[in-house]
Amino acid sequence: MSPTPVTLTNTRTVTPEGIHEGWVQVDGGRIAALGSGEPPRGTVHDVAGRWVAPGLVDTHVHGGAGHGFPEADAEGARRTIAYNRSQGVTSMVGGLVAASPEDTLRQVSALADLCDEGELAGIYLEGPFIARQRCGAHDPDLLRDPDTAEFDRWLEAGRGHVRMITVAPELPGALELIRSASSSGVVAAVGHTEATYEETVAAFDAGASVATHLYNAMRPLGHRDPGPIAAALGDDRVAVELILDLVHVHAGAAQVVVDAAGPGRVSLVTDAMNATGLGDGEYTLGGLRVRVSGGEARVVETGSIASSTIVLPQAVRNAVRHLGVSVPDAVRSASSVPAGALGLADLGRVEAGAPADLLVLDEELAAAEVMYRGAFVG
């Protein structure tokens, strides 16, 4: 049964074209119309002039609420999804980390089932085709050179739901893998890499179109050795991921990204792990022990920074408060920009015909109310 039609009134709605002040009508799980003046007859829900945003879209997230997507446990994954949904993240791409060939196939197959159900918007493979010296929170013993035959097996197991894969361009076979991914409709991202500027440009020319969590786990920016950071910031074809928890990237460095790429190319992500929503303690990520202290996650054995423990509205809030980004631009960087980067054209947008995934923000830019497919959550 479809949710009862409802019209949200007195809204400041973030749309692809700008800010719409008026009402948003929802019917049959989709946005029916936007307008001004008197709302249509029927159920009315007054949001009292608050911001109404599209449901946020996290395209790089590994878990939350005590579960990690690499565990390939359907019920645990649903808890992660439900927790994020309650916070305003209505669409997620389930992120995997480096694993053995057998485990990766099992994980991809399990997440594909959740995609078939509509619970996940796709599958993201952050490993294993990444550089050992920039492995971050990935087990270096599980990393390997790009292999198109192995990638093809993942595609088969994923049944059309594999959305993105991160590749280090300097590895043998990387450009061939990037071309294969692009021709298969999978977004290739550059990350966890020691690539030079020239090697990174070659990857973008081969079809890569995303930079995985810029700055983190990649060759640093140098004035005579600009590396992947400069290559990504200077290429209008590339969406630039940014983990804006103010732990992974200093606000001053994040400001450089926003100023250089513009909010239309900045894709806010969380890279969140299973500890998100639970607090400090010791957890695991891809088999590695991770300790969370003060919300900061680090690999126990190496001290390397691991995933974040935020949900996406916190990144939006940080962009507004610490970088001076407007609320509409910050919202788009957490909705339509990541959705567009991964070809999820109907997500992250408030317009007639789109799914009725909406987020009402309070004065602190946290989730006051969340609508998913036309029904309020919680």
Rank of each mutant, 00 (worst) to 15 (best):
S2T: 14
P16D: 01
Q25H: 15
A33T: 13
G35E: 06
G49S: 08
A53K: 09
L56Q: 13
H67K: 03
A74F: 10
A74C: 11
E75L: 12
T80N: 05
N84E: 12
S86C: 10
V89L: 11
V89W: 05
T90D: 08
G94D: 10
G95S: 12
L96W: 05
S109W: 05
A110C: 07
C115F: 01
D116A: 14
E119D: 14
H138T: 11
H138P: 09
P146C: 08
P146N: 09
W154D: 04
A157W: 09
H161R: 04
P172H: 00
L177H: 12
L177W: 09
E194M: 13
Y197W: 02
E199Q: 14
E199G: 07
A203F: 01
A206F: 00
H213K: 02
M218F: 07
R219Y: 06
L221P: 03
H223C: 05
A232D: 04
V238H: 02
L244E: 08
V247D: 11
V249A: 01
V249F: 00
A253H: 04
A253V: 03
A260L: 05
G264R: 08
R265I: 08
T270H: 05
A272E: 07
M273C: 01
V290P: 04
S293Q: 15
R298T: 14
T302Q: 10
I305A: 07
A306K: 10
S308E: 00
V311S: 09
A315I: 05
L323F: 11
L323S: 05
V327M: 07
V337E: 00
G343H: 06
G353K: 10
L358R: 13
E363D: 15
A367M: 07
G374E: 05
